[in-house]
Amino acid sequence: MPSDLNPAERLLNLVIALVNTNAAMTKQQVRTAVAGYADAPSDEAFERMFERDKDMLRALGVPVVTVGTGGHTDELGYRIDQDAYALPPIDLTPAELGVLSLAAQFWQDKTLQTDITRAMVKLRAAGAGDPSVDALAGLAPSVRAVGDAYGPLMEAIEARRAVRFAYRAAYNGAVLTRHVEPWRIAARDGGWYLMAFDRDRQAPRVFRLSRIESRVRVTGPAGAYDIPDVDTDVMLGKAHGEVRQAVVAVRPERASALRARGKPVPDGERQAWLARLPADGGADGSTPTGWDVLEVPFRSVTGMASEAAGYGAAVVVLEPAPVREETVRRLRAAAALGGARG
């Protein structure tokens, strides 16, 4: 046999040997019989090589199981149980495979791309036909990169191990080391979050991944905790309150994005709302013109106020009072940014 096998070919021969062995192979048998291992220069080098190869196979979903060889020695044997690693029959149609191919483009992170590419290689090996992308022509969903924290956090969630990292608090900007038990990684509204049990606070907490300022270290033993069945949106506080209506006056042709969500107030109420606005150009005290009055649905007072303030003088909030107050607060703060204060 060639002695200069590259690692992939050595691994291939190891898998074939351990699948085909009658009972199990001892380490010594692997070293002497399996192509690629004989050239290990020392016992230590062989041990390292074999351990690394076992880890790599486990990561690929090919677990090497350890069994007693029986008899007189306490030496361990190794084999691969094919039933444990085989993919159950999965009969994908071309359209479904097309959907999966599109899913493969979903992730921006290299680690996730690697995971999904491997999944696709396995599924393609299962004999599925050629993908047809017709069903989803022109669609391209994707999510922004999770970042480096993904790898260790997934490892921790899989093994139920705790992690620690340095985290910048949003309310005062201080950076502290946090010790948490990771439950789930979630993406909402363009942000990535970790849902976890905070060991320091002894309570569930949500962390924004972009505020993690160090590497995530996986610490402590496996199986250290259970992951409860939590609702992502409840935990992230995105289960918003009820929808309410704001009434806003809008300059003609302006704030079209706001108009698209709202609808004009009934004709009978329009005049009463307009009476609350200053008369245009100081005319003869008649009701102001040059405004449309809309009802716009909103959930968050600060969100609605922020949007309205962003339109400057093109939008005036009439109701409800908390939205109006919050809008005015933002405008006052913005006015104070200029040099000529007052």
Partner: peptide, 15 residues
Amino acid sequence: GMTRPLRLGTREAVA
């Protein structure tokens, strides 16, 4: 005997 496609690992299935 290498006729069976590999099952998906946890991380692959998650992705």
